[in-house]
Nucleic acid binder design. Structure first.
Lengths: 242, 242
DNA sequence: ATAGCATACTTGTTTATACAAGTCAACGCC
DNA sequence: GGCGTTGACTTGTATAAACAAGTATGCTAT
């Protein structure tokens, strides 16, 4: 639980919005009101509200107030908004899942791989391929590369459970930033071999570079998703004259 | 040009990062240093830096500094990070484009449409379908619904040019927030009719609800993208114990 | 009746200050 | 040499205050 006050207020407001206490298109209490409600400074309230706005829960209108944009029942079935473990998002959506490790080896980055993944050539890497199975259907093929010096001691068993959990709870290293890129690509023979594609001949691809608490790139991942069960949500705000 | 000081500083830092003055993995000058460089308070500097972090340019490390995560030549060819007009992003990528309006009519939202798009049933809407053609190839089919009372006076000619431009410069209405959802779907016969799909049998779909400066939903759009030339980039940060 | 103005609200920006918490290097002690 | 402490740095959180800018309401003068 983050102890920061603004975060507590953010969560409280978010919950009230999700519960319908502040319904769609209504206005939140003014910042001054919230200031006295929560017994804190206006800046702290503003920071909490900024979080709501950033995540699409509300929109600030100068001179008028902060309007709720959240509507019940319009969110996704399988969202991947933040950085979230496969295990986490599966649990959040009440799905029964298993993971099958289909590749587990140590390699060294060559020039081609380095250019594509952002690692330096010569870096020792774990190469791990994992099949994500939801309700008996193989839907995601994850291709991970972890820097072996930053993630020592990996095993097949850990890969079958949760590598992130190992990184955070055993190695006490933190995942912080992740740059992602989403595309749609033709399915390869390999995809067809591993995934239950049906009559789709394309996949949703997410490539990401992940950085640890020191800003070192710890991971590169390509997730090859069956088109079903894949959805990505996002909120954008337009800055004038960007 | 936004006159806000923090935004000026943000742009200046971003430019210096993009130009390589602050290379990948280096640290920015400390907040105190930047405070005296720009002649402003520490809060203002921090707000500028927050912008860099949010957009994946940098990462703050407590006790050490702010580390640059931006690497030259790793950005996308056709990014749609913010809310950006088709015209804008095409121009930014130096592509020759045309738009063909294939449908232009006024309808009224029924219950089914209302449930899917977020408009209230009975709302008068412009239904506009537009084909986006890049370098001679039809690659995107845009299906727009605009609230007719909020966007009066639309014509085919405006739709062929830029509806956003009309909204902002003629109607003096502002687009502010946009909630988007990305998925991959089977191509329909309709898609095949309009788009040069080649041997792809899927498309990248972006559905979005857009809100104006009053928080009223002004638009619903479904963009059906040819898989080529489609990429979406994003930066996520992990909040502890989210 | 209406147009215009004053006023009391709202959010947006900026400054200044204080303290908490994490990093790092230098120093001194053993 | 090695260990711990100190102190000077870094970013993170919170408060208080002032002013700018946009909105809405109600009063007043015409």
């Amino acid at each position: 639980m983050p102890h920061a006050k603004f975060d507590t207020i953010y969560r409280d407001l978010r919950e009230k919005i999700e519960d319908g206490d502040y319904p769609f298109q209504s206005f939140l209490p003014s910042e001054n009101t919230l200031t006295s409600v929560y017994g804190c400074s206006r800046n702290t309230v503003r920071r909490a509200i900024a979080g709501l706005i950033e995540r699409g829960y509300a929109q600030a209108i100068r001179g008028k107030g902060v309007r709720v944009l959240y509507r019940k029942g319009q969110q996704s079935a399988f969202s991947i908004g933040g950085i979230e473990t496969f295990k986490e998002s599966a649990a959040r959506n009440h799905l029964h899942t298993t993971t099958r490790v289909v590749r587990f080896e140590m390699i060294e980055a060559d020039d081609a791989l380095a250019a594509r993944t952002g690692f330096r050539a010569g870096t020792p890497l774990w190469r791990i391929w994992r099949l994500r199975i939801l309700d008996g259907r193989a839907l995601i093929l994850d291709k991970n590369l972890f820097r072996a010096d930053l993630v020592p001691g990996l095993t097949r068993a850990i890969a079958e459970d949760s590598i992130y959990q190992y990184i955070e709870q055993t190695l006490h290293r933190t995942i912080q930033t992740s740059k992602r890129r989403m595309t749609v690509e033709h399915a390869t023979r390999e995809d067809a071999k591993y995934l239950d594609l049906g009559d789709y001949n394309c996949l949703a691809i997410i490539e990401s570079q992940t950085f640890d608490e020191n800003g070192s790139q710890i991971e590169w991942t390509q997730s090859r998703h069956h088109p079903e069960r894949f959805a990505f949500e996002d909120t954008a705000t337009r800055r004038p004259h960007a």
